[in-house]
Design a protein around this nucleic acid. Structure first.
Length: 287
DNA sequence: TACCCGTGGAG
DNA sequence: TCTCCAAGGGT
């Protein structure tokens, strides 16, 4: 099957390690979790380290959760590292140490939601499933709906549209999914779409409408300075760099507001990202 | 549903 | 500088 989009992908697709034919389903799963809200350029080196160190789920399952958090480095949202470690345990204990080729079983894994289950199903196993990420949503919003940007959160209408657009043949569908994502990542970008190089511009509803600017409700950015997240990040960052544990007072010195520090530390403890050890010391889980 | 959860690069 | 945003998930 040939379409302008699939032809474009064949010519312009990036050569990413988790897209290669010799990449295991585990490698695909790790990549998808790392890529949640984190750009490809920062994921790639960490992904290579993880797959070299933990080539199979059982290898990661044999480590402490804290080691996963440490190896996560600065990818952000370190709870994902924890969930990937939990994933490895579940796979080892309940799936014979392999990634299941089943959307329902994938969805039941820690840290695997609708998107990641569909992506692993499609890219690792060739299952026909609509893979709808922020790129796909944006391409659909423009090409089909004629709007500059999609809604703030994924709607049922968008999912149905993606399923309707998906080619019938599973192998072509998998290639279609990744082609739409790649188009959104390389050409139909959020800030400055390069419509001159777009393979489907002649069919684009947004271009046909004169590329009107975003007209929806104001998109609220995420505050950062002075938030609990910044505080948490500082604490986990310090523990990641430390060989062992740190005294609570050392961590306390990282943040000016005592009340916010206490709340953030408690949040980290509740999340299992850190743990208490001895009297007044904190470490990554399991050491 | 809306909000919380990190980090760093681009414009 | 500062805002935006990047292959989302969990609650």
């Amino acid at each position: 099957m040939r379409t302008p989009l699939l032809d474009w992908y064949a010519e312009h697709a990036r050569d990413l390690p988790w897209r290669r034919a010799d990449c295991s389903p585990w490698g695909v799963l790790v990549s998808e979790v790392m890529l949640q809200q984190t750009p490809v350029a920062r994921v790639e080196p960490v992904w290579r380290e993880w797959l070299a160190r933990w080539p199979e789920p059982a290898d990661l399952a044999a480590e402490t959760p804290g080691e996963a958090v440490r190896a996560w480095g600065r990818l952000g949202y370190p709870r994902r590292a924890l969930r990937l470690h939990a994933c490895a345990l579940t796979l080892t204990q309940e799936h014979d140490g392999i990634v299941p080729a089943d959307l329902g079983a994938l969805l039941a894994l820690p840290g695997v939601g609708t998107y990641t289950a569909a992506a692993v199903g499609a890219f690792a196993f060739g299952i026909r499933s609509a893979v709808v990420d922020t790129n796909v949503r944006r391409v659909q919003a423009r090409a089909v709906t004629g709007e500059a940007l999609p809604a703030q959160s994924l709607t049922a209408v968008e999912m149905r549209l993606a399923e309707r657009l998906l080619p019938t043949d599973p192998d072509i569908a998998a290639r279609w999914n990744i082609a739409v994502m790649e188009l959104g990542a390389l050409v139909c970008t959020a800030r400055s779409p390069d419509c001159e190089r777009c393979p489907i511009r002649d069919a684009c509803a947004w271009v046909a409408a004169g590329s009107p600017p975003y007209a929806g409700p104001p998109r609220r950015g995420q505050a950062w300075a002075g938030t609990d997240r910044q505080c948490r990040g500082r604490v986990v960052g310090a523990l990641r760099e430390a060989p062992g544990s740190l005294a609570v007072e050392e961590l306390r010195a990282l943040w000016p507001d005592a009340e916010q520090f206490a709340r953030s530390l408690q949040g980290l403890l509740d999340d299992g990202l850190v743990e208490r050890i001895g009297s007044g010391h904190i470490q990554l889980p399991g050491g």
